[in-house]
């Protein structure tokens, strides 16, 4: 899989995935990363799976709000504004 020493290796590419997704890579590094991905199905797959992971985590629902807690908090707010 490796061609030249100057090419980015998988280990390095994987380490840059979050920077890449946050658009925090300097232009040159970004280009090297993208070139590596074009030529490396494993790292492309890895990036895709990280995206899916983010999406999956984003789908975890928070607990439902207890109506009693809600009423208590509104009470608290009311008391503060009555004072």
């Amino acid at each position: 899989m490796r061609i030249l020493n100057r090419d980015m290796v998988c280990r390095e590419a994987v380490g840059l995935v979050t920077d890449y997704l946050d658009d925090a890579l300097p232009r040159r590094a970004r280009r090297r990363f993208e070139v590596h991905l074009r030529n490396c199905p494993n790292c492309s797959r890895y990036l895709e799976q990280i995206r899916i992971t983010i999406d999956t985590v984003g789908h975890i629902e928070p607990d439902t709000l207890d109506p009693e807690v809600k009423d208590e908090l509104i009470d608290l707010y009311r008391r503060f504004h009555e004072e």
């Binding site: 899989m1 490796r2 290796v9 280990r11 494993n42 797959r45 799976q49 899916i52 999406d55 999956t56």
Partner: peptide, 24 residues
Amino acid sequence: RFAADGSWSSPPVPWTDDVVDQLF
């Protein structure tokens, strides 16, 4: 995860569309 030359030693296994659908 990586061989001495920095390439994958155990590459990520593909996740099929079915699996991805189930994730959600």
